[in-house]
Write a protein that binds this DNA or RNA. Sequence first.
DNA 1: GTCTATATGGTGATAGAC
DNA 2: GTCTATCACCATATAGAC
Lengths: 210, 210
Amino acid sequence: MTEKPQKPNRTRRKDEIIASAAQCFMEQGYHATTIDDVARRLGSTKGRVYHYYASKTDLFFDVHRVGMGFLFDALDEVVVGSGDGATVLRRMLMAHANAMLEHHTFENVVAQGVQVHRFGTLNGDQRATLQNLIASRDRFEAAFKRQIQTGIDDGSLRAVDVSVTAKVLLGGLQWSIFWYRPQPNDSVATRDVLARKMVDPLMQGLLPVA
Amino acid sequence: MTEKPQKPNRTRRKDEIIASAAQCFMEQGYHATTIDDVARRLGSTKGRVYHYYASKTDLFFDVHRVGMGFLFDALDEVVVGSGDGATVLRRMLMAHANAMLEHHTFENVVAQGVQVHRFGTLNGDQRATLQNLIASRDRFEAAFKRQIQTGIDDGSLRAVDVSVTAKVLLGGLQWSIFWYRPQPNDSVATRDVLARKMVDPLMQGLLPVA
DNA sequence: GTCTATATGGTGATAGAC
DNA sequence: GTCTATCACCATATAGAC
């Protein structure tokens, strides 16, 4: 009764395809990417891709799902126990900034999911999957809105507009998909330095202490 | 020797096409938009579009050019004479936020220009045009970097990382292309209220005055 | 100047050999 | 499970009628 090795192998193959697709989608955009591009990067042909994915749309959805998973994982590791609302919010923003940099490729594709409305005709499962992806993006933003409200309530944050502020803060970090280019020699530490430079003006503001 | 009306008419026709294309590109993305889509929105056929534009790429470049023009126009109207570095920066951010909201459609397309690298094969003129568009985006960001540096130098801003901060600030405002949806009844005043909610946390930061 | 009709090339997806 | 070959469709772009 040993575990069948089929499932893990299949999963590993799918992960390879997802990684290749993420890279292609980031570089060229979803619509400009062909299945041949994804296969060529794997050193194979599209026969393999279509063996694991029924359609280009399903492949995109899986890349998006993995990308959102990275963001939620980063949030889950934030210690919420100690500190006031502002302190926890800073930890969340730092975790998010680092995740955006580390998973630059996937998060670029996640952003495309917000814009790309044309996936061709979707079947029932695909429509449900799309709804799930949209819902997950909303849940992610909601976590930050709740935390901002918590900080306002406990007096550790100014009384800003919670919804707009959440969008502006996240947008400031997420815009890195447009300008950040991962370097071969950058480490967790170098990314963290950059993340701090990104989060600092958002938390502290630009004005000096009077 | 009256002015020939040909030129203005041609310009007006092109403006119609640009506006239609901008709307289509925003809703569906550049690659997913067909010339038929652009023509259908005009109540015509693609024969008209191709009479004014030699290719879809040229049409995209024109939409992008107009979109960047809106952003520069907004900056040019900012009064730089009075106030310290921080005050002028706030005016610039407010002008930019308002422009992003007012010209939401075009600015969405401008952002696509950052991502879309695949335009098919470009001829010499098109390559030059693309370089111009990229250069204009760089000049725009540079204006904000200079102003942040000015503020740091005169002591009206904290000593943040100029380059990263400029990207984060602009990103926070520009991310509105993903969440802002123009309403039929929103006016200059309502947009300005929203713009203030966007700019305020960026300038003041989130922490309360100690 | 705008239309219809069409040439041309490419892309998602499938069938079937191995 | 992966490949080659191919289909069917769609989009860019052009030609030519009106």
